[in-house]
């Protein structure tokens, strides 16, 4: 098992904030919008340096999506910022008609995704957003795993022409990917090569997959671990190549098992070379209040759950 270390734990949303600030310095067309969550989205640096390119919309997410669509007409590259819940479900029709169907170059940047939003509870913990967004034709869906990768993804999506959903989170998590990484949309990252099982993870579950891989190695199981930061377009080639070798797969995500990464992987396998699959994901349920760690334990989104799923899927090979 390849060794992964980190020097700090830090939230992925801060990676977005730093990436956005860098874009503010390098790309004069980048503009930012926020619906009264500047602090939560870590947008302060961009705002301080580019006040004329920041639009405080107030608590009006539908209007924010429409204004973002309009700003593209004239060549701006708008980055909208609010919680994942209010970035997707609340404004689905605005995104669908004014952004996706209208082919607008809007970057929908969503913090506090999933259970790890924590104590605010289920009203704010969306576990359906990946599904909602990946179903929209032409929408790119990205869910990076740590601070460095979120920063790199934020910078990369400005260079890409088309609507993007960028999903990140609130809790401090290990920052283990390279600081100077080049982010390639749609390109899976090999975390560890193995032979017995493929673990395909996204977002906060990538680090949990690494912990699981280390434990599995002690049990004599060789896990191939893939970081899927882009759920759409999915790097099907990387998944198929790996599963051809290992013969089974566990998917891991902080999202409902309906509509998430797991279903995209399952579809890919079924269309090509079917293989046993287990899903580490929430089981068609809402979340609740609690600390992020408590919630990830209770809803089975950690390394232990991944190990259990691996044990199960290996028996199905």
């Amino acid at each position: 098992m390849k060794k992964y270390t980190y020097t700090e734990t830090i939230d992925t949303r801060s990676g977005f904030g730093v990436g956005l600030a860098e874009l503010g310095r390098t790309n004069p067309n980048v503009v930012a919008l926020c619906a009264d969550l500047v602090g939560s989205l870590k947008m302060a640096e961009f705002i301080k340096e580019n006040p004329e390119r920041f639009f405080q919309i107030g608590i009006a997410e539908a209007n924010m999506m429409g204004i973002a669509a309009g700003l593209t007409i004239g060549g701006k590259i708008p980055f909208t910022g609010t919680f994942a819940n209010f970035s997707t479900g609340r404004v689905y029709d605005q995104i669908r008609q004014s952004i996706a169907y209208s082919d607008k170059n809007v970057k929908i940047c969503a913090s506090h995704a999933g259970l790890t939003l924590g104590e605010d509870g289920a009203t704010h913990q969306i576990l359906e957003d990946i599904g909602l967004m990946k179903m929209l034709p032409g929408m790119t869906v990205i869910n990076p795993c740590d601070f460095n990768q979120t920063k790199a993804a934020t910078i990369a999506i400005a260079e890409y022409e088309g609507p993007v959903y960028l999903r990140f989170g609130r809790p401090k998590v290990p920052n283990f990917t390279p600081e100077d990484q080049k982010f390639e949309i749609g390109k899976a990252i090999m975390i560890n090569e193995g032979t017995d099982v493929t673990i395909v993870a996204t977002g906060h579950l990538v680090w949990e997959a690494i912990l699981a891989g280390e434990e599995l190695e002690k049990q004599g199981v060789s896990a191939e671990i893939i970081n899927i930061h882009t759920i759409k377009p999915l790097d099907e080639e990387a998944i198929l190549k790996s599963v051809a070798k290992t013969g089974c797969v566990v998917t891991a995500e902080e999202h409902n098992y309906l509509g998430g990464l797991g279903e995209s992987v399952a579809r890919t396998l079924v269309e090509n070379t079917p293989a046993p699959q287990e899903f580490v994901a929430t089981q068609d349920t809402f979340g609740e209040s609690g600390t992020p760690a408590q919630l990830m334990d209770k809803y089975g989104l950690n390394s232990e759950a991944i190990i259990k799923a691996v044990t199960k899927v290996l028996k199905r090979k």
């Binding site: 639009f55 539908a62 209007n63 924010m64 999506m65 429409g66 204004i67 973002a68 669509a69 309009g70 700003l71 593209t72 007409i73 004239g74 708008p78 029709d93 605005q94 008609q97 004014s98």
Partner: peptide
């Protein structure tokens, strides 16, 4: 939805 879009274009 159109007024929001028009505002964006005006901005």
């Amino acid at each position: 939805q159109g007024m929001s879009v028009a505002i964006g274009a005006a901005l």
